[in-house]
Design a protein around this nucleic acid. Structure first.
Lengths: 144, 144
DNA sequence: GATATTATGTTGTATATACACTAAAGAGGT
DNA sequence: ACCTCTTTAGTGTATATACAACATAATATC
């Protein structure tokens, strides 16, 4: 083997798809995706947040968040408790959202542990480090 | 540090987004995305292929490929040389497609090398291995 | 207080992705 | 030739993602 001829980006994207599919399958019984899980989880951490704050927390574009949050609001897992007439939203989990997240956490943990085992401690550590390094490319070195 | 509390899947997705954005920026001058680059590249390798074969090569759903290939056909980088009335497509690069890919390859190489350098040989190798391991999860152990 | 600037959220457009379904072409068996 | 089963491509729907543009609210500046 001479060089790494295959595109690192494409390989990374492929692995992300595969892993997403795995987590989604594990979360199937709760009826949310891993992406939605992440959104709910971060919102719970924040307690309350407007779109901008939540988007920043999730490292997503505001417009992306606006679209991702729609099905969650429709399913009443998230609500906006802002006073009418104000532009600044007050997003938070609903009761149903809290319960759903609680349930999801168990399944998430199972999935996470399973992947950790499959990878092994050493490979996991180096993976996390490599991913962190990649995140520093092309800009945002702001937080942390 | 006790455990890996952050979701591996979400971290992987984030890194994939970041890296995609980087490759896309590098490919900007050619006017194609890294995803489209991958499509063109694989199609060139195959020479000629129908949708199913190309989708399998790319590890994508046929319907995904159908959508991804549309802008490339519209831009006349890819064409279908099948006889009219036949269902089986004969996809291949056009002249423009070949030229564009040739140009893109140079920029891709630059991006790839830059990332390889940033990661370092050791981290790169372990990353590739971890990604390969992840790809074996949840199914397709068919090829290789 | 009026105006200029910024923050905030949404919409339009485009790519990326998959599952379920449909339509139609091909292949085989009788 | 006719019928069946499979292959092949495309559509509908849904999520995920970002950039550009916009409208309006909030804030700062004068």
């Amino acid at each position: 083997m001479t060089k790494q001829e295959k595109c690192i980006c494409i390989q990374l994207r492929g692995a992300a798809r595969t892993l997403t599919s795995y987590y989604n399958a594990m979360l199937g019984p709760v009826g949310i995706t891993i992406n939605q899980y992440s959104l709910l989880h971060h919102l719970q951490e924040l307690g309350t947040a407007n779109m901008s704050a939540l988007a920043e927390e999730l490292r997503l574009d505001r417009s992306t968040l606006a679209r991702n949050i729609k099905p969650l609001i429709a399913a009443e897992l998230v609500c906006d408790s802002a006073i009418s007439g104000t532009r600044n939203k007050q997003l938070q989990l609903t009761e149903i959202g809290e319960q759903r997240l609680l349930h999801a956490k168990k399944l998430w943990k199972k999935a996470q542990l399973c992947i950790e085992e499959q990878l092994g401690e050493k490979r996991l550590k180096s993976l996390i480090k490599a991913l962190a390094k990649i995140e520093t490319i092309g800009g945002h070195t702001d937080d942390l």
